[in-house]
Amino acid sequence: MKPQERQGQGPVPSQQALATAQGGGYGWLRRTLANRWVVAVRSFAIFAALWWLFYAWNGNPLQLPSPVVVVEAVWELLVGGELAEHALISTVRLMIALCISILLAVPLGFWMGCSPAVNSFVDPLVELLRPISGIAWLPLALFIFGVGNTLPVFIMVYVGFFPILLNTVAGVRQVDRKLLSAASTMGISRAAVLRYVLIPGALPTVMVGVRLAFAASWAAIVAAELIGSPSGLGFAIEWYRQLLMTPKVFAFILVIGVVGYLCDVGLRSLQRLLTPWSEGTGVQ
C-alpha cells in the first residue's frame, strides 16, 4: 500500500512545481484569486463600485444614496437599537405565524394522507382557496382585523398553510407501504405506527414544506406590514421613504435580506438536525 500511495502522491508536487514555473512564480496568487471567498469579495467590490458610479452619475442622493452613506445608516440604526427592534417584531410575527401554520397544517395533512375519504372532502376546498394569494386577502383582512399585529400574522398563516399541507400529504403518501404492512402484521398499535413509521417517513417532506412556507411568508410579511401594520421591517422601509430618508430605506431593505437569509440558514440546519437521513424533495 505504502509505495503505491507514495507513487500516487508523487506527481502532485511536481505538477504544482510546473504550474509555479509556468506562472512565473505567481501560482499562489492565482490560487488565492480563484478562492471562492476572494471571488465573492471581488464581486461585491465591483457591485459597490458600479453602485457608486451610478450614484455619481445620477447625482440625486434622494433616489440613490452612495454606498458609504448606506453603511453609515446601517451603523446608526444598529447602534440606536431601532434596527433590532423592527427586525425582532417581524421575526416574532413570522415565528408565531409559522407555528400556527404548522399546528394547523401538519395534523390535517396527516389525516388527509392517511384517509382517502377525508382527502376527497378537504382537497377540493384547498384547491379552491390556494390560487387566491395571501396578498389578495389584504383588503378584506384589513377590514376584519384592522391595522395591527393580527393582520400580518393572519396573512402569513394563510400563505404558509398550503405548502406545509401539500408537502405533509405528499410525505405521508410517500411512506413505504411495505413498512406499514410490516408494522400492522406485527400487531403494533396505531399510535405506534404513527410514532415510529409515519412520522419519521413523512418528516423530510414536511420540513421541505416548512422551508417553502417560510420563504412565502417572508415575502408576504413585507407587503402586509407595508400596508397594514404600525411596526416591523415592512413598515419601517415605507416610513422612511415618506420621510425621504433614503439611506435608511436601503438599510432596512438590506436587513430584510439578511434576516431572511439567516432564517433560511437556521431552518436548513434544523432540517439537517431533524432529518439527517434525507435530503427530501417537496412539491410546490
Binding site: V39, F47, A219, A223, G234, R241, I256, G257, V258, Y261
Partner: peptide, 18 residues
C-alpha cells in the same frame, strides 16, 4: 452567484419604496 444569492431573500415588495 454571491450577488444573486444576496438579492434573492429580499422580497419584491421590499423594493417597492425604491
Amino acid at each position: 452567484d454571491p450577488i444573486i444569492e444576496s438579492f434573492r431573500p429580499i422580497a419584491p415588495m421590499a423594493i417597492l419604496p425604491i
